[in-house]
Simulated assay, not measured.
Amino acid sequence: MRSTAGSTTPTGTVTRPEAAGRVRRFTTAERRVHRTTGLLMLVCLVTAACLYLGPLAQLVGRRHLMVTLHEWSGVSLPLPFLLGLLSPAFRADLRRINRLAVYDRQWLRAVRKRRNRPEARPAGKFNAGQKLYAGWIAGAVLVMMVTGLLMWFMGLLPFISRTSAIFVHDVLAWAITFVVLGHMRKAFEDPEARLGMRNGYVSRSWAERHHSRWLGEERTGTVCGKADKV
Score class of each variant (00 low, 15 high):
L79D: 05
L79R: 10
L79T: 15
F81M: 07
L82W: 12
L82I: 14
L82S: 06
L82P: 11
L83Y: 09
G84I: 06
L85N: 03
L86C: 08
S87D: 15
S87C: 02
P88C: 09
P88T: 07
P88N: 07
A89F: 07
F90A: 04
F90C: 04
F90Q: 04
F90E: 01
F90Y: 14
R91I: 04
A92H: 11
D93F: 00
L94T: 01
L94D: 03
R95Q: 10
I97W: 02
I97H: 01
I97Y: 04
N98G: 13
R99Q: 14
R99N: 12
R99W: 04
A101S: 10
V102T: 08
V102A: 14
D104K: 01
R105Q: 08
R105M: 08
R105I: 13
Q106P: 00
Q106N: 09
Q106A: 14
R109N: 07
R112P: 01
R112V: 15
R112T: 15
K113A: 14
K113Y: 07
K113G: 06
R114V: 07
R114S: 08
R114Y: 03
R115A: 12
R115T: 04
N116T: 15
N116C: 10
N116L: 14
R117L: 12
E119T: 03
E119W: 08
A120P: 02
R121L: 09
R121D: 00
R121K: 15
P122I: 03
P122Q: 05
A123S: 10
A123F: 02
A123P: 01
K125N: 08
F126R: 13
N127L: 09
A128H: 01
K131Y: 05
K131T: 06
L132S: 06
G135A: 06
G135L: 07
G135M: 06
W136Q: 10
W136C: 13
W136F: 14
I137C: 14
I137P: 01
A138P: 03
G139Y: 08
G139H: 13
G139T: 06
A140S: 11
V141R: 00
V141N: 02
L142R: 03
L142M: 11
M144Y: 02
M144K: 06
M145Y: 03
M145W: 03
M145F: 04
V146D: 02
G148V: 08
G148N: 03
L149Q: 09
L149G: 09
L150V: 11
L150D: 00
L150P: 01
M151H: 09
M151V: 11
W152Q: 10
L156V: 05
L156I: 06
L157P: 11
L157D: 04
I160V: 15
I160P: 06
R162I: 08
R162Q: 09
T163E: 09
S164F: 10
A165C: 07
F167M: 11
D170Y: 13
D170N: 12
A173H: 03
